[in-house]
Design a protein around this nucleic acid. Structure first.
Lengths: 185, 185
DNA sequence: TAGTACCTGTACCTTTTGTTACAAGTAGTA
DNA sequence: TACTACTTGTAACAAAAGGTACAGGTACTA
């Protein structure tokens, strides 16, 4: 038996910055947020949803390393914990596992590359608009139930900036604002 | 015979944004710059040096895709061109090739992650200082022979901003400036 | 030597983003 | 109800970054 099934309650850390990664987590149900932070700022990297794994814990398979990100459950989450040394063997034993690993890297790399370009060249208002639209699309709902400060932590800025920009968006008819709710028009 | 050895002259495009990647390039000698751009701004992703491959052309191995980056030789460069479908087979045939591929992804992903965090949280002056110091270290020389506009294109800003910041650095004794030369103190 | 292309410095201004500070609203609960 | 924690709005200000414009320098070469 190599993997251990485990239930993790909401808001628990799966990975913490500067700590060693000892096992690989596969998310079976729930949702895990992965981000970077510095002082009181944060920036989202991605969410790990069923059935995916965090590409960064994958990288730990191949050499011991400290995590450079944080990962925390956003809901009650079920994961399979696999000690990294087992997962490393699998890559050479099982073609399908190898394929899964490679695909995870490819997808994640391209995703991060898009984020990088976005961050380098687009102003905050554009990044915010794209973000709320992507949320709306992903959830298949016009209504986004996030606070301004939560949004600020996703895109790497401050609450006041998000509030100001959202207000501008409302004035030009892009959104409607309510308490803890943004309606994307 | 799968690979083709090829000499590429200085300043030739290896990969262009929005074009399909048909082959994988292994750099045998020379140097290739990989970057993203938008209008007249650019931001460096990495350099490909012997004996490495561009992680992004690796990703093309596994599914047809348009490039989201540019790659151009900075010196006379020798590459081996491998049609992507051959390279794809190798991953399942040869353990050592598989290992090489995975290592490329891991290294590149972590590298990009550092850049992303740097871009998200650090001001331009700090990023510039880190960049020129890394160049100095890499070249094992105090003297950096790059113009201000070249530096601007590496870190994603404009020439005027670089000139101003370098002048400040000179005033506080961090560097000495000459025509086409920065001495790191 | 003149011409060209590129490099550097800098003053001035604008836009973008962040900070501080405060007022007021919402929701849950003891 | 009163208390708490969190959310939202916004004015005024400050700092960071970018853009315009121009003067002058350097290097190469025709």
């Amino acid at each position: 038996m190599f993997g251990v099934l485990q239930n993790v309650s909401k808001n628990s850390y799966i990975i913490e910055q500067d700590k060693y990664i000892k096992w690989l987590a596969l998310v079976i149900s729930g949702k895990v947020r992965v981000w970077q932070e510095k002082e009181d700022r944060q920036i989202l990297l991605y969410y790990v949803c069923p059935v995916q794994t965090c590409v960064l814990s994958l990288s730990a398979i191949f050499r011991d390393c400290k995590s450079i990100v944080n990962a925390k459950t956003e809901e009650e989450t079920t994961i399979i914990k696999i000690p990294v040394r087992h997962a490393a063997e699998w890559s050479f034993k099982y073609n399908s596992w190898n394929k899964f690993t490679l695909n995870s890297f490819i997808f994640s790399y391209e995703d991060l590359l898009h984020s990088y370009k976005n961050l380098a060249f687009n102003k905050i208002d554009k990044r915010l608009l794209e973000y709320i639209r992507s949320i709306s699309k992903k959830n298949n709902s016009r209504y986004i139930k996030l606070s301004h400060s939560q949004l600020a932590k996703e895109i790497g800025t401050t609450r006041e900036v998000v509030s100001k920009i959202l207000k501008q968006f409302e004035l030009i008819g892009l959104v409607n604002l309510r308490f803890m709710q943004i309606e994307v028009l």
